[in-house]
């Protein structure tokens, strides 16, 4: 059974629906990538899953339970966490404090989990006292992902974790995401660096105009001509 299932999702920001019957699923051990053109509704789909955009029609289930339009704090408690595309760290808080905020809902001792995050991102351990706003873009993404990991989620939702990063950091972040997945965390992420992301994804979706147009394994999507022309060839040259 899939960990996350979203079926026939319609919804948006109050006006016209942005999502028009989007479907997706994520299995417990998977990395699933959503690619698609700008404005296709990729961020909106992730936000709808996380209860930040109202779903007008359709259902979302997590671990077999209906979570359609559930509030984010409830979803965090159930084992889902979300890293927004932008403004995803608390800039005046130190690295450690950002991670502590990630654990806000926890009442148990989380020091071991913080140590584990510093193991995944050793550079954060060196910078632990520095305000997150002073870090480089790549390090900020590490803080954002680390913050989301503090609740020990079963599913991590990432919205463009490599946006605006230099190629070196893109590689590093994607490699860390694979490592996190190998620790048993399912990952659903939106990525603009489509080629790189599909290389490490188990499966991928191509979202166009609010609907998942193509679904396939990462390898097959990379080999798909239509996908290649629309999202990989031109893009890769730009990235």
């Amino acid at each position: 059974m899939s960990l996350l299932v979203a079926e026939d999702i319609h919804g948006g920001y109050g006006g016209v629906d942005i999502l028009n019957s989007a479907n997706l699923r994520v299995d417990a051990d998977e990395i699933v990538v959503i690619i698609g053109p700008n404005g296709a509704g990729k961020s909106t789909l992730i936000k709808a899953v996380f209860g930040l955009v109202p779903i007008r029609r359709g259902t979302v289930t997590f671990d077999g339970n209906a979570i359609t339009n559930q509030r984010p704090d409830v979803l965090v408690a159930r084992g889902m966490s979300y890293v927004p595309q932008e403004r995803n760290v608390f800039p005046t808080l130190s690295v450690t404090e950002n991670l502590e905020m990630g654990a806000y809902t926890r009442t148990d001792d989380y020091s071991a989990d913080m140590a584990a995050i510093f193991d995944i991102f050793p550079v954060l351990a060196e910078r632990r006292r520095q305000p997150a706003g002073q870090l480089s873009g790549g390090q900020r993404q590490m803080v954002a992902i680390g913050r989301a990991l503090m609740v020990k989620p079963r599913l991590l939702l990432l919205d463009e974790p490599t946006a605006g990063l230099s190629p070196k950091f893109v590689d590093e972040i994607l490699e860390r995401i694979t490592a996190i997945n190998q620790l048993g965390v399912a990952v659903l992420m939106v990525e603009q660096n489509a080629r790189r992301a599909l290389e490490l994804a188990h499966r991928g979706y191509v979202l166009v105009m609010g609907a998942c147009r193509i679904e396939d394994t990462g390898a097959n999507l990379l080999a798909n001509r239509e996908v290649g022309e629309a999202f990989l060839g031109g893009r890769a040259a730009n990235d």
Partner: peptide, 11 residues
């Protein structure tokens, strides 16, 4: 700092 992020963090 970031009210929206505070909300999605579960604060």
């Amino acid at each position: 700092d970031e009210p929206d992020l505070a909300q999605v963090t579960g604060i």
